[in-house]
Simulated assay, not measured.
Amino acid sequence: MGLDEDFQAAAAAAKELKTKPSDDDLLILYALYKVATVGKVDTSCPGMFDFKGKAKWNAWKKAEDKSPEDAKRDYILKVQQLQEA
């Protein structure tokens, strides 16, 4: 399989993990997925009272310098690590 197929398989597998990942792991997965599928942050930062939205936005912003290909590879590796845990 190619990178795109592996990424799609990992995205499907992430939804089927046996145990719920930690909040930090979920933010990493979110950020890598957004960079892989959207690229750099293309929205404004959520308001100060939207804690969940702001955490997700900050994670995406932190990862936005990765290339989409690197983000896909990192996402696949992270899902594999979570499956093994």
Rank of each mutant, 00 (worst) to 15 (best):
G53I: 08
F51D: 11
C45Y: 09
Y33H: 10
T43I: 14
C45I: 13
A36I: 03
A14S: 15
A55G: 10
K15F: 10
F7Y: 10
V35D: 09
P21K: 04
A71K: 02
A59M: 05
D74M: 11
W60A: 01
A63C: 01
G47Q: 07
K66V: 00
A36W: 07
K20G: 01
K62I: 00
C45L: 13
M48C: 12
F51W: 14
D24H: 07
K34C: 10
K56Q: 13
I28G: 08
Y75M: 07
K54F: 06
K54C: 01
A71Y: 03
I28K: 13
A12R: 10
E69G: 04
A10Q: 03
D74E: 14
K15T: 14
L17H: 06
A36L: 09
D42C: 11
A31S: 13
G2S: 13
E64F: 05
I76M: 00
A13T: 03
K18S: 15
T37E: 11
R73W: 02
K54E: 09
A55M: 14
N58C: 01
D24Y: 06
P46I: 11
L26E: 12
E5C: 03
E16A: 13
A71E: 08
A31K: 04
K15Q: 15
Y30E: 03
E64K: 07
D24N: 12
E84S: 15
A14F: 09
E64L: 01
G53S: 09
M1F: 13
K72T: 00
A13M: 02
L3E: 01
K54W: 06
K66C: 10
L77V: 09
L77C: 00
A13E: 06
K61F: 12
G2A: 07
K52N: 09
S67D: 07
I76H: 03
W57H: 05
A13G: 01
L82W: 08
K18N: 14
D23F: 15
D50T: 07
L29D: 04
F49D: 12
K40V: 06
